[in-house]
């Protein structure tokens, strides 16, 4: 049976091939009970396929899926104690909002009065009380998204799977929903597995993040670990922007061989340090981005807070020096593959 140490989800050697293509090429992962876990990666990196194998929509080519210690690899979706919030919400168009939310309870044979009450409670928890009689087509994108969330949560699943649920919302709404999702997750205490290609989303909401690259997990860790200590050039480039230095540039900057990464906001424009020429100045409201061509032979991006009014520190074509603290230089374990340039 389950106890506190049994992970909510355990994936071992999980693979999925579509014809000759390995969408998922061997994933091992444990997700703890009650965790807000994000799977982050570019499209085609296999994160959604992993989610669909946890939900039961795809059968793995190899490997196993365990939910609370139970092997569910070959079980149908309706036999698994997980619920999904779909990217397109997948609300039933012929049912009202209330009927949509009640569907899971109705299928499991919950009595009418109980299911009505639970559905109303679920709708209230996503701040949609009073919308029960509407059809999904009469609701906005953000409202539909919340209906989909209520429809999944009302079943009190052990695990909630969310497949890019905020992808279709505009920016303001998305940021608001990020906060709300995190709040709801804390309130209900259910394990959330959240698939996204948006690194901001993954970093702001998650307890832990898995970064996917071509069907494999490149790194798993807390948002801080993944951001501050990227395990590969790919992670450094995908999670936030980063300056990755290799080869001769690395040798002349750090006096040794290797791959090094420094975040743009950790670099200062100062009176001494690595010399270079400002190639571009991009004003972006709260910050200004400077692109500097280093004499050492590579390009570096520097982000500086606009704490004072007035013109930028330096202009295009100026000669500058870049400095940084040694502890902000991350040495990335060498990978035989391509390097992600900043």
């Amino acid at each position: 049976m389950t106890d506190a140490t049994t992970p909510a989800i355990r994936l071992t050697g999980l693979r999925k091939s579509f014809g000759a293509v390995d969408a998922v090429a061997g994933v091992d992962l444990e997700i703890a009970d009650g965790e807000f876990f994000s799977m982050l990666g570019p499209s085609g990196s296999g994160k959604t396929t992993v989610l669909r194998m946890i939900a039961g929509f795809e059968l793995p080519t190899a490997g196993s899926v365990f939910l609370s210690g139970q092997d569910v690899t070959r079980l149908a979706p309706f036999e698994r104690d997980v619920n999904t919030v779909f990217q397109d919400y997948a609300l039933f168009p012929h049912m009202t909002v209330q009927e949509n939310v009640e569907y899971g309870l109705k299928v499991r044979g919950v009595a009418r009065a109980a299911r009505r009450a639970q559905a109303q409670e679920a709708l209230a928890s996503v701040r949609l009380e009073g919308y029960g009689r509407r059809k999904p087509s009469a609701m906005s994108g953000g409202q539909r998204q919340r209906v989909a969330l209520a429809r999944a949560l009302v079943n009190r699943p052990r695990v909630l799977l969310l497949d890019e649920p905020l992808g279709a919302l505009d920016r303001k709404l998305r940021e608001q929903m990020q906060v709300e999702l995190k709040q709801i997750q804390r309130d209900v205490g259910i394990t959330f597995v959240f698939v996204t290609h948006d690194q901001d989303e993954a970093l702001t909401m998650s307890d832990r993040v898995a970064v996917f690259e071509s069907g494999r997990i490149a790194q798993v860790g807390t948002p801080e670990e993944v951001y501050e200590r990227p395990a590969s050039p790919f992670v450094a480039g995908f999670v936030g922007t980063s300056n990755v230095f290799t080869g001769d540039t690395a040798r002349s900057l750090f006096a040794r061989d290797g791959v090094f990464s420094i975040r743009p906001e950790k670099i200062d424009i100062s009176s001494d340090g690595a010399p270079g020429v400002v190639a571009e100045v991009v004003y972006a409201g709260p910050v200004t981005r400077y692109v500097v061509d280093l004499d050492a032979g590579s390009r570096a991006v520097v982000v500086s807070q606009n704490r004072h009014n007035g013109s930028p520190l330096v202009a295009r074509g100026d000669r500058v020096h870049l400095s940084w603290h040694d502890e902000h230089v991350v040495e990335i374990p060498p990978v035989a593959k391509e390097t992600a340039d900043a």
Partner: peptide, 8 residues
Amino acid sequence: EASADLGA
């Protein structure tokens, strides 16, 4: 899929 996911 949503219907199967909800137990049907």
